[in-house]
Design a protein around this nucleic acid. Sequence first.
DNA 1: GGTAACTATAAACACGGTGTATACCCTGAG
DNA 2: CTCAGGGTATACACCGTGTTTATAGTTACC
Lengths: 176, 176
Amino acid sequence: MDRSLALLGLMSAGPTHGYDLKSRYDAIFGAARTIAYGQIYATLSRMIRDGLIEQIGQEPGSGPDRKRYAVTDAGRTRLASWLREPDTPSPTLQSNLFAKTILALVLDDDADALLDIQRHAHLARMRELTTAKAGAPLLDRLAIDYALFQIEADLRWIDLTSARLTDMRKEVRRHG
Amino acid sequence: MDRSLALLGLMSAGPTHGYDLKSRYDAIFGAARTIAYGQIYATLSRMIRDGLIEQIGQEPGSGPDRKRYAVTDAGRTRLASWLREPDTPSPTLQSNLFAKTILALVLDDDADALLDIQRHAHLARMRELTTAKAGAPLLDRLAIDYALFQIEADLRWIDLTSARLTDMRKEVRRHG
DNA sequence: GGTAACTATAAACACGGTGTATACCCTGAG
DNA sequence: CTCAGGGTATACACCGTGTTTATAGTTACC
């Protein structure tokens, strides 16, 4: 996934340098996965290239000099339009589950087993997340809720699909 | 998303050349998005490099010679383990909605509006998909159901989050 | 016999992310 | 006082995936 807009967003709250940006990112979005320094600096240099941010100074800290960057007008425009634009979740591309299931049918592999494995993995994950949710701060809870809802959706699809496997096998044959 | 395993899966049903592989892919997975020839050949050359497939011949067709490829043992092993392995949907990374919402709060932008825009886009998309589902073949219907469930999950999260925005604003302030 | 459309492939490129190298500063153990 | 270790700070080379565009043969038709 592309985290550049999220970083641009964080920077638009006020100028920063890369090292600090990493901490800020992790504090807010790091629940799922922290970001690597390498990605921060790589992204910064690309945003400079694209005129979304610019260096506004260089200050000593406790280490090599910090380079402060600020969002440009172009950057603000870009960010605003990103925030305004709704996302269209692309069917099936997000997950491999659909592809795996169809392939299992095409290859005459055990599609039931595959769905069952995924169902159990999901249920286990739900328990994990539910436990984690208990003591977590509000932001993390929301991230967890997001995941829980997505997993529930997957589970519904799994149930629906299991029930239709026999019909699907016929359909897939015709594509062969 | 990485489509290489899906392609490997299709090839494991029997040797093909790139041009044909594209048609096969589109016939089965193309409902959401067709694949580009460029991606086919790029992926094929990488799978050759990695020893997952090998060229087993070169035959004339109606154009430049066709190069036939077959899945190697390594390829079959790889495919089998992919099919067997369940996916863990990574929270929030899949969608930008979470990031956008948090950023809107951090930047003191209109988070309600953002959620509302996304809600309406989703509802519109649901109507579209429901219409499309009517005449579609079974495989496409399943793809559409997958999308519908995901969108519903998003909608649930949107409702939950809208209701919590005031609390979240406080939380976000503390991170500042 | 020329040109349009389809068959078939490949290579250059762009984008995002990872891993690793580098350098500076501060602290504390010896 | 010195030097080793850990935190601060940045940069770059590289890798994987997907897009764009170029190239070439084959068929069909006017």
